[in-house]
Amino acid sequence: MTDELDSREVTPLVDEAVKKAAVCWVSVGKGPAVALWCLPLEGTLLVVSGPGEQSAPGLADADAAQVTLRGDHGGRIVTWPARVTRLQPGTEEWEAAAPLVAAKRLNASGPTADLIGRWATEGCALNRLAPAGTPVAGADLPAESLAEPPREAPVVRATRKPFRLHKVRRR
């Protein structure tokens, strides 16, 4: 196969994966990938982050990122380079995209208009992630597992032995 044929075959894969995406894994620079809630719109993904929203380190000021989309059973479908565009409040793009993202936001406190206003005033970033380059093809994916140990967090507790009401007899 030629590179031209590969890119034509992979592009529909990215388009289809983006259409069905609800969560994407985004890494900026050499940082770790972070799972983010997203909204697909016209072949791109919209992601909101900032105070009171999901944490996306470095994404608000980035120009490029790596996006990984997974299937229903957790397996990686495709990883592609993305062009990151921050939508600014008051622009035509913001006015079109922000209400769509706010309407799909789960567990939002208050009406959609208040949520959009909070995003604009508190410095939240509404970013558009658009495919920008050739996706990582199957042959380019690593053969070993990319699983990482859990990151340190203050909410992690030491595991205890399970409680047993009665003695367990061993035969």
Rank of each mutant, 00 (worst) to 15 (best):
P89C: 09
E92Y: 02
R105W: 14
A108V: 08
A97N: 07
Q88A: 14
L106T: 15
G90V: 12
Q88N: 08
P89N: 12
E92H: 05
A113S: 15
N107W: 01
W94A: 05
E95R: 01
Q88K: 13
E92S: 13
W94I: 04
P89Q: 09
L100H: 01
T112L: 14
I116D: 01
A103N: 05
P99N: 04
A98V: 02
L87E: 13
V101E: 02
G110T: 03
I116E: 02
E95Q: 04
E93F: 09
A98T: 06
R86P: 02
L87F: 11
P111T: 06
Q88F: 11
A98W: 01
Q88P: 10
K104V: 04
A103R: 07
T91V: 07
G90T: 10
T112F: 03
P99Q: 06
L106F: 00
A98I: 03
P99K: 07
R105E: 07
T91C: 07
A98C: 09
P89L: 15
T91H: 05
E92L: 09
I116P: 00
D114K: 14
L106V: 12
L87T: 08
G117L: 12
A97Y: 03
Q88I: 14
A97H: 04
W94G: 03
P89R: 12
K104I: 00
S109A: 15
A96F: 01
T91D: 02
R86W: 03
L115W: 12
Q88C: 10
I116A: 01
T91M: 10
W94P: 01
A96M: 03
T112W: 06
L100Q: 06
L87A: 12
